[in-house]
């Protein structure tokens, strides 16, 4: 399954581990690479990641819902009042999910088909409208509430990704929260909408190994 190609820009090795993840950022020259039938092509350049102290890093392994995963990519998003990481998890069964890493909290999210979204407030967003914080939206038996709705900007990316994430990519993002720690995100750019659902998790519950070592801080007890 793993495909090793060379970056057309700098010639360094670029590993593609899953057909589901056709895009990646070259580890050496930050070129945005897209795999295609002809091989690999560079479609742009990612920005350097700003300094942060996230405990997650590419290569971290863990387990969620009984399935092992490895962190293979990350997109860093920003809005007017902050920024956060979305870590891409490649599961052992070939599927992928996201680990949101914002304000010291972690969210485990999986993509759901947009066609499955029935809630009126969300359909309106998918069709190009706006969402209002506080509005309720039922999905999958969970009564969500819109907690946030704003434009967000991709500022950097690294590793493998299911889509190209060029810096400056603008997305309208709606965050929803359920009563028992459920969360969901609806994102819409000019072309299409994507919908993610999941829940808040503690990093320790993911049985992480290979966490990022941070100077002056002892590894947490949950790190294996």
């Amino acid at each position: 399954m793993t495909l090793t190609l060379n970056c057309p820009n700098c010639g360094a090795q670029a590993v593609f581990r899953s057909p589901a993840l056709p895009c990646r950022v070259c580890d050496y020259c930050q070129s945005l690479l897209v795999r295609n039938d002809a091989g690999v092509s560079a479609v742009g350049k990612a920005a350097a990641l700003p300094f942060d102290v996230s405990p997650v890093r590419i290569g971290m392994r863990g387990r969620a819902d009984g399935i092992g995963f490895e962190v293979v990519g990350r997109v860093r998003w920003a809005w007017t009042d902050g920024s956060w990481n979305e870590w891409l998890l490649l599961f052992q069964d070939g599927s992928y999910g996201w680990l949101g890493d914002a304000m010291g909290l972690f969210m485990l999210l999986r993509e759901e088909p947009v066609a499955r979204v029935r809630a009126k407030a969300l359909r309106r967003v998918i069709e190009g409208g706006e969402a209002v914080p506080g509005v309720e939206a039922q999905h999958g038996g969970v009564k969500y509430q819109v907690s946030d709705a704003r434009d967000v900007l991709c500022i950097a990316a690294e590793g493998e990704l299911p889509f190209t994430a060029p810096p400056g990519w603008r997305v309208y993002s709606v965050d929803l929260k359920g009563p028992a720690g459920e969360c969901a995100t609806l994102q819409r750019d000019r072309d299409e909408a994507t919908f993610y659902t999941g829940r808040y998790v503690l990093l320790g519950d993911l049985e992480p190994s290979g966490l990022r070592a941070i100077e002056g801080w002892g590894m947490p007890a949950y790190a294996s």
Binding site: F51, D52, V53, G82, I214
Partner: peptide
């Protein structure tokens, strides 16, 4: 991998004193 540095140092644009950023990437 080398341990990630924990802090980012900056200077206050108003008074010039050193300000240590201890949660870089999270702090706004």
């Amino acid at each position: 991998p080398r341990p990630q540095p924990a802090v980012r140092a900056l200077n206050c644009p108003s008074c010039g004193s050193a300000v240590t950023l201890r949660a870089a990437g999270y702090s706004v």
